[in-house]
Each structure stands twice: as C-alpha cells, then as structure tokens.
Simulated assay, not measured.
Amino acid sequence: MTRFLKVIAAIDDINRQDPRLELHNGEHFPKEYLYSLRMSQMLQLYDKDADELLKIAAHGQHIKRWIIPRSDYSMDRKGYLSWRTQLKLMHGSLLRDIMQTHDYQEKDTESVVNMVIKKKLKSDEPTKKLEDVVCLVFLQYYFKDFATQHPTQKVLDILRKTWNKMSVKGRALAMELDISDDSKKLISKALTDSD
C-alpha cells in the first residue's frame, strides 16, 4: 500500500468506530465512516484530478467527530461556534498525527490541517474546493432531514449561507444534484428571496 492509501485506511479504521449508525441502501453504516465515503465520492465528481492532500482532507473532514458532542456546549450561537472550533482543531490534530506516522512532510501535513480548519478559506484554492465539497455533500445527503427539523426561516437562512460559501463551479454542480422536489423548492425560494 502507498502511504496515501495507508492514511485513508487509518481514517477509515477510526471512523468505523463511530457508535452512531446511519441507514443507507438497506445497510447500517457508522455515521462518520459513511460521511467520509460520501466526501470522497463527491470530491471525485467535483474534481477527478484532485491531489492526494485534498483527498485526505476530504476523507478526514469529520474524523472521530462523535467524541465531542454538541450537547457539551451551550445551545446558542456562541456554544455552536465553540463546538465547531474544537471539532476542527481535533480533526486537524488527528490527521496531522496519522500523516506524520506515514512519513508525510510537515508542509504537506500542515496543508491538510489548514484545509480542514479552513484557515485560508478566502485565499487558498484547495480549501475553497474542500468547502464546495462539504456544501455539496450537505445538500445531497443531509439537507432534506435538516429541513424537516428546523423552522423554514432558519432553513432558508442556512441555504443562503451555504450558497454564499460556494464557488461558481460548486453552485453549478449543486443545481445538478439528485435531491427531492421539496429541497429544490426551498433552494429556489432561498435564492429568489436573497436577490
């Protein structure tokens, strides 16, 4: 196995330990393991020539996410932001350790960490690509359930924020996703109302 495949396998080994299961095509998957597969598949669709560092960042985006529960933080915006910050730092630290174990140079490990913590989201092209993929995976696989659990106004607000994070390429691909008619209507309403 190449060092890249060893890193991907190490991420999978960790994410398969997620005690939370999600049903997909009649089979139960550990939640973050399934998320990592979806991220890698979406990256392949988004950029078939993505380099291995972006592939690692995408596959490891939510590594071991379950060990820092949302319920450990206050249920307000400040608590949410603190939770997200701690998650990103933890994901980055784990990926750094795994990559160092498999002989990646420091500049490469830091590149992946910076992508995952979104350090240079506005200026770094690989980080922008990763954010597009994150948004596309959300819209494809998680938005429908999210929309049923929150008030319409909050859903529309999240859609606008998601859309504003995406590049022109990401937005174009989003319009081609296989999503429910209800989801499409909400996206259309969010975009129309924001004009």
Rank of each mutant, 00 (worst) to 15 (best):
M39D: 08
Q41A: 14
L43Y: 03
Q44I: 11
D47S: 05
K48V: 09
L54M: 09
H59Q: 13
G60P: 00
Q61P: 00
R65G: 05
W66F: 06
I68N: 09
I68T: 12
D72Y: 10
Y73R: 04
Y73C: 04
Y73D: 00
M75E: 15
D76I: 05
D76F: 10
R77V: 15
R77Q: 13
G79F: 02
W83H: 06
Q86H: 15
K88A: 10
K88T: 12
K88F: 13
M90A: 14
S93P: 09
S93N: 13
S93M: 04
L94V: 09
L95M: 03
Q100E: 03
T101V: 10
H102T: 06
Y104A: 02
Y104T: 04
Y104R: 01
Y104K: 07
K107Y: 02
T109S: 03
E110P: 04
V113C: 06
K118P: 01
K118M: 02
K119Y: 06
K119H: 03
K120Q: 11
E125G: 09
K128A: 08
K129E: 08
L130P: 08
E131Y: 06
V133L: 06
V134R: 09
F138E: 07
L139T: 05
Q140C: 15
Y141N: 10
F143H: 09
A147C: 09
Q149M: 11
H150L: 02
H150A: 00
Q153S: 14
V155T: 10
D157M: 07
I158R: 04
K161I: 01
K161G: 15
K161Q: 14
T162G: 08
T162K: 03
T162C: 15
T162D: 05
K169G: 14
G170C: 12
R171T: 02
M175E: 14
I179W: 02
S180F: 02
